[in-house]
Design a protein around this nucleic acid. Structure first.
Lengths: 191, 191
DNA sequence: GGCAACTATGTAAATATTTACATGATTGCT
DNA sequence: AGCAATCATGTAAATATTTACATAGTTGCC
């Protein structure tokens, strides 16, 4: 799949970066919502990309003697990245989610135990949703222009807000079902 | 993490199953939306679970001589699974999504090229949403009872419908932005 | 009886990801 | 000057996942 490869190429295509910068990008507000990698995966991948001729680097000294590698995409890298980006692909059959897996098996818990989990998840997802909304409102009070990286940042952040909002609504629905039964549908609350 | 372990334990906890049955469960309408594994991952994991004393099996002959292994959860397996299920956990920081990654980098495509990708994704996600909605309506016209596996099936299917519905809305928003700019926000359409 | 689709189980190899081990420089603060 | 937080880069080992290789029986249909 080489998704990490293209995530990195895309970043380095935006501007020259060190491995550390790439790691920070994967930890950042925007990107971390839909992609992530540890530095132990990044540094070996950088070596691979250099070997493949898709990026090159110059060693830059920071301060007195700290050597850092500033990676830059090559024309071959640009082409490879662009081909990947333009490729029309099938949607993913599975978006893995451990909490949904737990929910699938909730029958093995008492209602109270499962409600406790639901409420904890709800609290966390609400917090995340609010945080993402705040980012969206502060950073993108006006719509960014096309052909800028801000446009990509905006669209995925907007998507993250929608995703979290819906996750919260789903959790609220689960809690509602377990607390009250669904409106209009009388539910047998006794086992 | 051992998520596969617990996914399998959860399934075998519902009822005794063969490795093939487990594979089919991971391919099924409900589960495949939020978890999946290939048989090459399942069979070795079954061996491991047997070695750990969490499941046991009896060999069942199907037809004349086809040997199948029917796995059954042990009391130790039930305990391990139940402990995992009850555990309160942090929400995932990243829900990986390759199309969102592409969107993050859309600046490197022309508007037409990216719109083509958006429309293709939209078509596929609409189709999936409609399919999931159909399953939900046909299988769960009335709310299932608590403490049944149907309740888990219902909740995750409902969650999948919500997730796809929101994905469709997000794609429509992206298309809207690229075709018309956001309502009320005049957008510079010339690069 | 032949054939296709499906049932059934495994291993091997490659790739992807996480967690732990390991080291050292820089910056800003007190 | 000392300290903490951050910058910076790497490897090792374990775990997770995908793709390919490999084999064989069963069921239903024509």
């Amino acid at each position: 799949m080489r998704n990490l490869k293209y995530a990195i190429l895309g970043l380095v295509n935006r501007e020259p970066m060190t491995g550390y910068d790439i790691k920070k990008a994967f930890d950042s507000r925007g990107l971390t919502n839909f992609w992530h990698a540890e530095h132990s995966q990044i540094y070996p991948e950088m070596k691979k990309l250099v070997a493949e001729g898709l990026v090159e680097y110059e060693t830059v000294i920071r301060g007195e003697k700290l050597e850092t590698k500033l990676y830059r995409i090559t024309p071959a890298g640009k082409k490879d990245f662009h081909d990947w980006l333009r490729d029309d692909v099938e949607i993913e059959r599975t978006y893995k989610d451990v909490f949904r897996l737990r929910t699938f098996f909730n029958e093995s818990l008492s209602q109270e135990e499962y409600l406790k989990l639901l409420r904890s998840q709800l609290m966390q997802h609400r917090q995340k949703r609010d945080m993402l909304r705040f980012y969206l409102e502060t950073d993108f009070s006006t719509l960014p222009r096309f052909k800028t990286k801000q446009m990509g940042d905006y669209l995925v952040l907007d998507g993250a807000v929608r995703r979290e909002t819906t996750y919260v609504e789903w959790l609220e629905h689960c809690i509602d079902v377990f607390e009250n039964g669904t409106p209009g549908e009388p539910v047998d609350l006794i086992e």
